[in-house]
Design a protein around this nucleic acid. Structure first.
Length: 575
RNA sequence: AGGGAUGUAGCCAAGCGGUAAGGCAUCGGCCUUUGGAGCCGACAUUCGCAGGUUCGAAUCCUGCCAUCCCUGCCA
């Protein structure tokens, strides 16, 4: 596992990179008071009913990160108590994602369903203690008697059945004598509690459904509240970290453990992640998939781990993101620019550079020998010289970016223009001498330039300066590849805030995917799935792992480079 | 007879009775063979509001306001 990120940090680095948060502080305090005998044991407990997204990544990094930092353990546990919603497919995908993020649960992969027998025994104990009863009320009746936010509920007529009768009925529930929904097992707590969760919550329901792990062994399944605290207890979890909406469940969590007199972890709640310009609810993500708005759970526009991975995000960037956004109890909307900053920062240091021209404009270098081909040395990564250099073929006819030429340039434009000189990155200085247009449309179809042979490599002997440096590819040597330009999925900062008469789907960005082509330098032909590059001056791109074929890479744009020129242009136009 | 939580800059977020960290974004400048990266600087006289305690309050107390969560046999 890549534990380097946390374990090999110096104290100084830790100080700088690990920001404090209230959960970390609780652990530090507990360690001081020896509350758990010096142990830190967390768990990540997903329900296998969908794909993990960046919000889960926050939780994963929190739970595993805390264990790593304090020399503790973190379990991966599937909360699989509802067979009708869950599937093995999700189990596999989740395992893959957590591992890809760089975390390791060693031999501690657990399933709540592994505890069904033990959980059943606990329920029997509760019945024997007079703290649980079999209720014959229907689902509607239970709802009707629950009361409201301001009124107490009404006690079930079955609430005071004898222990013997309850034991018998519960056993017969397990044996399958009753149809779905006929009876439930309920905790006997307080129908007048201001906390609705405490109004005799259902803890077992009858579901004649096949479970992805236990098959048809069970026809009664325990509910979340009953299962979760006891699973934590069984696994000797110290800090059970969950999201804010479970705050109201904590009294129940504590109640079960106290009534049963078993090992009692501490539940701690934090605010779930919200990210601007996207949605993070399973329901909405599923809707995007079902409506064909995206191409599947792993569509590169999706905020799922699968999607981010395919888009070109790295585990390092996601972990860094999780670290810097912090953990608190305040409901917030994190600017997606933070995530984008993390991937730029990581890829800038690590991604191999390459030349690719998106909107080509042909340039003929009139004074360059017709058949000469030179091998130009180019840095693979100016940020990391150890990545070496590569040869890029150069010849008389090249393509440059259409944006890198303007016939009537505004002030401060220091790319190519008639009579102006620019540097072709790593190659030569060229000066534009002629512009060829289509006689009918007036569109610029070709440029003629001259080059200065003494500037090879991109430096002039006389020390004259050129401000502009542009990228290029040799017409004879480049190849065309499919490029998929991705942008934010939504146009609205918070798509969950829906205006009157609209739907959140109305805010989907119709241009979140633009499929186009680009002219690539030769070595890119052999790029492998998931390989990441910086196409100089354009952005970071990643070879699509699903659509690419050997020697026919398809590149996904992960994120553009920052573009301060467009800002200058905008200001120019405004003034 | 409602309950539970949360309010520190545009967005996150430290802070724990001694005089407002850090990051993102933004805006300047320097530097640059990526208008990238990097570097330097600016960016809360004030912490939801109003009172109170204190030599001293974002931190303690009281009241108010705003927002979020809770009436699944989902998790």
């Amino acid at each position: 596992m890549d534990t380097k990120l946390y374990e090999n940090w110096s104290e100084e680095e830790k100080e700088k990179r690990i920001s404090n948060n209230f959960i970390r502080q609780i652990i530090i305090d507990d360690l001081k008071t020896n509350k758990w005998g010096g142990r830190v044991h967390t768990r990540f407990p997903p329900e296998p009913n969908g794909y993990l997204h960046i919000g889960h990544a926050k939780s994963i990094c929190l739970n595993f990160g805390l264990a790593l930092e304090f020399g503790g353990l973190c379990n991966l546990r599937f909360d699989d108590t509802n067979p009708t919603k869950e599937d093995e497919e999700y189990v596999k995908a989740i395992i893959e994602d957590v591992r890809w993020l760089g975390f390791d649960w060693e031999d501690r992969l657990y399933f709540a369903s592994d505890y069904f027998e033990q959980l059943y025994d606990y329920a029997v104990q509760l019945i024997k203690k007079g703290k649980a009863y079999v209720c014959d009320l229907s689902q509607d009746e239970i709802r009707e008697t629950r009361g409201t936010l301001t009124e107490p509920g009404i006690e079930s007529p079955y609430r005071n059945r004898s222990v013997e009768e309850n034991l018998d009925l519960f056993e017969r529930m397990r044996k399958g004598e009753f149809p779905d929904g006929a009876r439930t097992l309920r905790a006997k707590i307080d129908m007048a509690s201001p906390n609705l969760n405490m109004r005799d919550p259902v803890i077992y329901r009858i579901k004649h459904a096949s479970h992805h792990r236990t098959g048809n062994k069970w026809c009664i399944y325990p509910m979340y509240d009953f299962t979760h605290c006891l699973s934590d207890s069984i696994e000797r979890i110290t800090h059970s970290i969950c999201t804010l909406e479970f705050e109201d469940h904590r009294p129940l969590y504590d109640w079960f453990l106290d009534e049963l007199g078993v090992y009692h972890p501490q539940q701690i709640e934090f605010a779930r992640l919200n990210l601007s310009y996207t949605v993070l609810s399973k329901r909405k993500l599923l809707e995007l998939v079902k409506n064909g708005i995206v191409d599947g759970w792993d569509d590169p526009r999706m905020p799922t781990i699968h999607g981010l991975r395919r888009r070109g995000y790295t585990p390092e960037a996601i972990r860094e993101f999780a670290e810097i956004i912090g953990v608190s109890k305040k409901e917030s909307l994190v600017d997606i620019a933070v995530l984008e900053h993390c991937i730029r920062d990581d890829l800038n240091k690590r991604a191999q550079r390459a030349f690719c021209v998106l909107n080509p404009l042909k340039v003929v270098i009139d004074n360059y020998p017709d058949d000469l081909v030179e091998e130009i040395d180019a840095l693979n990564n100016p940020e990391d010289l150890s990545m070496g250099t590569r040869k890029v073929p150069f010849s008389k006819v090249i393509y440059i970016e259409r944006d890198d030429f303007m016939e009537n340039p505004p002030p401060k434009y220091y790319r190519l223009a008639p009579g102006k000189e620019v540097r072709l990155r790593y190659a030569y200085y060229i000066t534009c001498t002629d512009v060829v247009k289509d006689p009918n449309t007036g569109e610029i179809v070709e440029l003629h330039c001259t080059y200065d042979p003494t500037t090879r490599g991109g430096q002039s002997a006389d020390g004259r300066k050129v401000l502009g440096t542009i990228h290029w590819v040799s017409a004879k040597h480049c190849f065309e590849a499919e490029l998929r330009l991705y942008d934010r999925l939504f146009l609205k900062e918070n798509p969950n805030e829906v205006e009157e008469g609209k739907s959140w789907l109305d805010y989907v960005n119709p241009n979140s995917l633009v499929i186009t082509k680009g002219l690539c330098e030769p070595f890119l032909r052999n790029a492998k799935p998931e390989e990441k590059f910086q196409f100089e001056r354009l952005g970071y791109f990643c070879v699509d792992s699903k659509l690419s074929k050997p020697n026919v890479p398809i590149f996904n744009r992960t994120i553009t480079l920052k573009d301060s020129w467009s800002k200058i242009l905008k200001n120019l136009q405004n003034s």
